[in-house]
Design a protein around this nucleic acid. Structure first.
Lengths: 213, 213
DNA sequence: ATTACTATGTACCGAGTAG
DNA sequence: TCTACTCGGTACATAGTAA
């Protein structure tokens, strides 16, 4: 080993592996050879198959591409009116300083609220649970306790202007606060003006994952 | 929003989206309806499509399944003779105590060396670079300096006995030490005896990722 | 303008079988 | 015992067109 690997397999076994007939399996092997993804040496009853460098490259690239597609989750939402719970938090000094430091930008005082449909909401919650989060620590002042806030890096951009991505953060706030499928976005600019958004406009959230899982 | 989303699209547009003809797109929509993945209300020239709960479930499951397949990387290697660099490290007290504590098991003093072919080696290195590692800190004694060691949780099992997985760890040692595509495995039992392995036997490494990327 | 039926073409599968 | 050719069947695509 430590080199290109030689496989001994006949078309029947290969067919069983792929759940197709011997004939189809044979044809597949021929096709792979025509595409130069493998080389063969047939010696009577023995067929030795070796994956070429091209074949290796293509397999790895397929893998990477598929993985990238599945990892790059885009969530679509519609701009929703009002200031959410999150918008209130941003203004509080105890939080603001942490947002500034941990997110790497000075957030606009207020959040952009996006209304998600059921599918996008499910996907987003599932992804967020699987991702590392940035923890904004809770604290207390003379009046009350402020809890921890989780957030996640992301990009946002209007559906109509995919080239113009803005670095932002999702506030992962317990949604029971608004009861609806709303997600709040924090960013440096005032996004409504920056993107010229109106209520109901479609905005895309692109989750950023640092890929150190 | 905040509910199931209604889409207005005609078969021509849908065809453009999928790069198929209007006729094919129309048939696809009919199929989706027959499978109860969508419901439709055709009102003259307007066709409103709504994804059903079943459709949503199936899409999310497809996504999860595909993702799991791509995330669950199995690396195949052959048992290789000799004690590697890593086997030497394990015996050193400064390392051993850390292995014990950070890996969650008391490793056998010695490693199982697996020889990988080019493809498996590429994949493994690529994955390891993308994954979080457990850092075994370097130290120095009166004689010399000992560097950091990276390792990763994994399972190993013989190709012939897939049910019998053993928790283990990959030592991610700079491979220039042996020049070949060898990976060293640490586990609590002496794997050669435990699995009754001989040189050349095929062993599978299943990478564990905590999925907090 | 829009859906979807019918007809036709094409790709691919597997049975049978030759070499 | 193998690979792989021929051939018939099936699935699915698109063009043309009816409703």
């Amino acid at each position: 080993m430590g080199k290109r690997k030689e496989i001994k397999i006949n078309s029947t076994e290969f067919g069983d592996l792929l759940n197709v007939s011997q004939q189809t399996a044979s044809r597949r092997i021929q096709n792979l050879e025509e595409m130069n993804w493998i080389t063969r040496s047939i010696e009577g009853k023995q067929q030795k198959i070796e994956i070429t460098e091209l074949g290796t490259e293509i397999m790895l690239n397929m893998y990477r591409t598929l993985k990238k597609i599945l990892d790059t989750i885009l969530i679509a939402g519609e701009v929703s009116e009002g200031i959410g719970e999150g918008g209130y938090y941003v203004a509080i000094k105890g939080y603001y300083e942490q947002f500034k430091e941990k997110l790497g930008f000075e957030p606009y005082i207020g959040t952009l609220n996006l209304d998600l449909d059921v599918i996008n909401n499910s996907l987003l919650r599932e992804k967020l649970n699987d991702m590392r989060f940035i923890k904004i620590n809770g604290f207390k002042d003379e009046n009350r306790n402020y809890g921890d806030v989780k957030c996640h890096h992301c990009y946002v951009f209007p559906l109509k202007d995919k080239e113009n991505k803005v670095k932002a953060a999702i506030l992962n706030i317990d949604r029971t606060h608004h009861g609806k499928n709303i997600v709040e976005i924090l960013a440096q600019p005032y996004l409504r003006d920056y993107f010229n958004l109106k209520d109901g406009d479609k905005v895309i959230i692109e989750l950023i994952h640092d890929d150190k899982n």
